[in-house]
Amino acid sequence: MNANVKLQPASTEPVSIVRPSRAAALMQRSGRYAVQQLVPPLVILLVLGVIWEMLCSGADAALPPPSQVVAETWELIIDPFYDNGGNDVGLAWQLLASLQRVAVGYLLAVVAGVGLGVLIGQSDWAMRGLDPIFQVLRTVPPLAWLPLSLAGFQDSHPSALFVIFITAIWPIIINTAVGIRNIPQDYRNVAQVLQLNGFEYFKTIMLPAAAPYIFTGLRIGVGLSWLAIIAAEMLIGGVGIGFFIWDAWNASRISDIILALVYIGVVGFVLDRLVAFVGQRITRGIPAN
């Protein structure tokens, strides 16, 4: 490149040469980045698949090898949206049913959890009164709530929502409260000098200052709800990816179960990244102080 510049007449602008080469360098760099990030997981996946295939290829293997899983579930993979009526619907519909439950239960948990978190973050009295109760209740496993909520609601649908709600709410409450307790005195002083009223303080100082913590809670919460819904649906039946797994087990369709597990993992991963992404956008990457 240096040699090139030297050969050119003095009047030409060498800058014009630099521009495209910089864009090309950027392309090359992002291409290299993609290769660096994508190759290792693909290689590992391939190796694990081969090991699995070898382990389960024997005639007396209890579980099917990956080749057999793909062959047996091919119809489910290529047509996730079929609907034969009743419970015989495609995996996309099953996942959507589960996601819908999670969405409702989780959103209720977000509203109630942030509200309660603000309360115990702000008031020492509420903290002392509620915190011990929360600390005990949050250790109750999600499924342990199911019989009680079935008894209370007399219906499986609201019971499933309640299980999601009660699972997701604890990390949201606790992280919100910690975030609010950790608002630096400086910001409180600014609010005091400006004589911000309760709502103005909530909007301009409290929520943004606690946002990194709140989103930590929201992220843990969405992961837990996805864990809980699968388990709850296995018990209450009807529709949903959890029920699909239980149904497949009863019909000894092991390959279907494995496919469903893959879908559940991918959806859970996407949910987690989605909340993280929203949090990243809202807090603009400002770390918790």
Binding site: N189, V190, P208
Partner: peptide
């Protein structure tokens, strides 16, 4: 005017 400026980072 606070020693550590106390600007709101968001």
């Amino acid at each position: 005017v606070f020693q550590n400026h106390s600007l709101l980072p968001w």
